[in-house]
Amino acid sequence: MSAHPDDNLISMLNQIALNLGGGRDEESAATATCRHVETFWARPMKQRLMASLARPETGLSATAHRAATLLAKRQEERRTG
C-alpha cells in the first residue's frame, strides 16, 4: 500500500489529539484539538485535512476524526453564516 500525501498531516493530528486528550473525555479532547488546528495550522493544511475526511480509511484516531469533523463543521458555518 502506498503512502498518501496527507499521511503526515494525519500523523500530526493524531499526535496532537493524544497530547491534548490526557485526562479529558473524548469530546473535550476533540474540541481542544480542533481549537489548536484552527489557531496554529495554515489554511492549506486545514483544507487538506478536511478533504481527507472523504477518504474511506483516513488513519485518524477517534478523537482526531472528531476534531477534523468539528473543524469542517465550523468552517462551513463560517462560510454560510
Rank of each mutant, 00 (worst) to 15 (best):
S2K: 11
A67P: 04
R24M: 10
S11L: 05
G59T: 00
L20Y: 12
A29M: 07
L70G: 10
T39W: 05
A32C: 10
A64P: 02
F40I: 06
L53I: 06
M12V: 12
H36D: 10
A67L: 04
T31G: 12
L9C: 01
A51W: 04
S28C: 09
R79M: 14
A42Q: 13
A54P: 08
E77R: 13
P5S: 02
L49P: 02
A29G: 08
E38W: 03
A62D: 11
G81L: 04
G59C: 02
L53N: 07
V37C: 07
Q75S: 15
E38Q: 10
N8I: 03
R24L: 11
A51S: 15
A17W: 02
S2Y: 12
A17N: 05
V37T: 06
R74T: 07
H36W: 15
P56W: 07
S28H: 11
R66T: 12
G21N: 06
A29Q: 08
W41M: 10
H4G: 05
D7Y: 00
T33K: 08
N19L: 14
R78W: 07
S2Q: 11
A62P: 09
K46G: 08
T58N: 01
G59F: 00
N8G: 07
L20C: 06
S28P: 06
P44W: 02
A51G: 13
R24D: 09
L49M: 09
R43M: 12
T63R: 06
R48H: 07
A64M: 03
T58A: 01
N14W: 00
T58V: 03
R43G: 09
G23P: 05
W41S: 06
M12G: 02
A64K: 03
Q75K: 11
R74N: 12
L70M: 13
L18D: 13
G23V: 05
S28F: 12
N8S: 09
D6I: 01
T63P: 03
K73T: 15
E57M: 09
L60A: 01
H36V: 07
V37P: 04
Q47E: 14
A67D: 04
N8Q: 10
M12A: 09
K73E: 14
R24V: 09
E57F: 05
A64Y: 02
C34T: 09
M12S: 07
L49I: 05
N8L: 06
R79C: 14
E57C: 08
F40K: 12
H36K: 12
K46Q: 15
A54E: 15
A72C: 13
M45I: 05
A54N: 14
S11T: 07
H65D: 06
R35T: 11
L71M: 09
L18V: 10
M45W: 14
A42R: 11
L53V: 06
S28L: 10
R78T: 10
R66K: 15
I10W: 00
H4R: 10
S11I: 01
N8W: 03
N14C: 01
